[in-house]
Nucleic acid binder design. Structure first.
Lengths: 213, 213
DNA sequence: CATTGATCAATGATCGATCATATGATTCTA
DNA sequence: TAGAATCATATGATCGATCATTGATCAATG
């Protein structure tokens, strides 16, 4: 059993319908189909994708959690106007969370250094190519590895909820911002972790803030 | 137009149905109607409240975001088993966010000191009573005031998403944990803010961590 | 006896239709 | 004609019903 996207005829497997609808809308936003501030009408999407209103609603709620859209009771959803400011707000929060992550992880980060170095190696290799998307993903993976090393599930889930990858992608497409994925900086961080440097949390914090616009 | 809770006959206004259902479930969890680990069946609640499945689903998704329940695709939702560990995980995250908040707020926190002192005054007064719930709420309000002073909307929303009030209430009811709402400590913090003490962020961080179990 | 496959009940996921509200157009009144 | 009242339309919110997946039960098989 499957659905068909009326526009592209691409078959969509049933499992995780709202998930797929979410991807569809994200794509529509990042390609500019829906301009910032524009309304997103549940039923219109439902009709277009050949699904019903329910899954679309769920998708919109998920996008609201990612701060990609705003919605008011009885008045529907609209695409947020991502200003530079919106983007800038992410960095202090992310930096603060990752600083905490290192504080928590430092005791048992020693056993994870291999994974971090492997990660960073891949980033260094990708830096040779011009696949920005891949560089970004690898760079984020490096940070994710650290956050996971903290062993605090809430911290991970809060960090993931920032939707860093998504927002960075949008920022690339919409604001044409630069990406700096300096594996050299990451190497320095790894060294700090290795020697259990008490300044390591702050080092990572500042490293993140350096990305900020 | 209204619905009636079949159990209590309390009329529920239509507006914000999923909101009210959420409160109903939260209440059921905190009073032990649903034990930790127990399944929460969408249709059973829907029938009991005389509503349909949709709003119940939405309520459950909200509770999932608050980490009060867990749910798996096609397998429904169950009450999380809030261990001491779950509770403990909140504190480092909260402490990290509030440290960041002070870092951001410090420059323009001077103008907000009055509000903070008023807040803390109310807490001091409530400490005379034995209304723990009120003390907790006031204590949290003090911290919220600081987070809001940072002027970073994302930070606020992430901090709010921790559901500190809810979790503290549950912790009170389930684990019978103590609450320390030391307005004296808050007064010290205010002093640090007043003199723009660069250690203020860390002071708040440590203050929060002192609450941790 | 353990394993596999079929069957079935429970229930989450989805659907199509209806209800209710917000917004804008239209009419009415002073 | 300005402002209030009324109506029409679009659409979010909710409903009742159906589809599909899961997990349990149990028979058949090796």
């Amino acid at each position: 059993m499957y659905c068909v996207n009326a526009a592209t005829d691409a078959p969509l497997l049933r499992a995780g319908l709202s998930h797929q609808i979410r991807e569809f809308i994200v794509d529509g936003i990042s390609t500019g189909r829906w301009a910032p501030g524009e309304r997103i009408v549940e039923r219109r999407i439902a009709t277009e994708l050949g699904v019903s209103q329910g899954p679309v609603r769920e998708a919109l709620r998920q996008l609201e959690a990612l701060r990609l859209i705003e919605s008011l009771p009885n008045r529907g959803a609209r695409v947020r106007a991502f200003t530079e400011e919106d983007l800038a707000e992410i960095f202090p929060v992310r930096a603060g969370l990752e600083r905490t992550a290192v504080e928590l992880a430092l005791p048992h980060l020693a056993g994870r250094l291999d994974a971090l170095e492997a990660q960073n190696q891949r980033l260094a290799e990708a830096a040779e190519t011009d696949d920005l998307q891949a560089q970004m993903r690898l760079s984020i993976d490096f940070h994710r590895e650290i956050v996971e090393a903290a062993g605090n599930r809430l911290l991970i889930s809060v960090w993931e909820s920032l939707g860093i990858e998504l927002w960075t992608t949008l920022s690339l497409r919409i604001h044409r911002t630069e990406i700096y994925s300096k594996s050299a900086e990451h190497a320095q961080l790894i060294e700090a972790f290795r020697r259990g440097d008490p300044a390591a949390p702050q080092l990572l914090h500042d490293h993140v803030m350096n990305y900020a616009p």
